[in-house]
Write a protein that binds this DNA or RNA. Sequence first.
DNA 1: CGGGGACTGCGACAGTTTGCCGCATTTCCA
DNA 2: TGGAAATGCGGCAAACTGTCGCAGTCCCCG
Lengths: 180, 180
Amino acid sequence: MSTAALPSLLLVDDDATFCQVLGLALSRRGFDVHTAYRSATALQLVQTKPPEYAVVDLNLAGDSGLGLIAELLALDPAIRIVVLTGYASIATAVEAIKLGAVNYLAKPADADQVLAALAATGGDPTIPVNVRPLSIGRLEWEHIQRVLRENGGNISATARQLGMHRRTLQRKLAKRPVKF
Amino acid sequence: MSTAALPSLLLVDDDATFCQVLGLALSRRGFDVHTAYRSATALQLVQTKPPEYAVVDLNLAGDSGLGLIAELLALDPAIRIVVLTGYASIATAVEAIKLGAVNYLAKPADADQVLAALAATGGDPTIPVNVRPLSIGRLEWEHIQRVLRENGGNISATARQLGMHRRTLQRKLAKRPVKF
DNA sequence: CGGGGACTGCGACAGTTTGCCGCATTTCCA
DNA sequence: TGGAAATGCGGCAAACTGTCGCAGTCCCCG
């Protein structure tokens, strides 16, 4: 197939399997997909030829994907970046959008959702508001994520501040966020 | 304490009790606080004299607070708006930031957290940064009390909404008779 | 360069809490 | 007033938490 007119898309995720699956799905939908498993690789790719779109995971080995967002946009402010993470939290979502991402999705998300997110326009005040409050588990997850960010990712300091044992915090973080 | 240079803050929330408590706390921290229980009132207030800061809830009776964000900023792009909601979601957080809010918090949040959120990335040196986050236990307790009140004290309904077993909620409520 | 000192990941184990059952009473309205 | 819904509580297995320990990694400082 011709790559001449295909919009290019950079997929950054340290999960190789996930990359393959999503990458293939996006290719089928008419994207010229390139993949990187870490920030450094992604930046190299972008320097030679900036893509039009990018899908970035947050939990990349080493530095967080948040930093990558800023670096990608510094190289080319026109890239439309969507964050896609299995450890979604409001705190990181806020940060990602402030940094210039166009959207933020929680895994699992299929190719269509990613596409919709990439295409999303600016602020749309018509988004419906949740009908039910956060569950205890979700609230706890959000709170932990926020404090963790305030402490620059320092687990020990966060645990102390939260009055919770470090081991317990570790175990909580190892789990995925609770839905709802 | 001089009142000459107090920064003005608009608090928009349909929960009158919540407004009073938070409003008082913010006043004590050196803000000239004005309160509105609905969007229309808020807009009127802003037209006469735009505040420097605003704290808005998302589920105002009638239209969502998201729309209000856009309208407030249309009247004065310099207002620093923080969203504070009991029905937080990543989707609305993303929208709020895109619309121009500087931050997004889930209730329960105390006045210090609100201040920290207002100050975020703004580099406003007048605001103290010394914030100790709520412990997990306290956060949970506040949240439970809030939802319980919304459900008129109905334990079964609250437990359902919180995705928690009714027996567990009973035990939690029994254990902590409103001590801090 | 060699030591603290702090952080991190993780196994193990006992003590606590939660999920989930069942059942006897109230409460609440239609 | 009848029945649905809510409540209070006992009990048990499963899941979670608090603790301790240990090894490995970073980084600063003398």
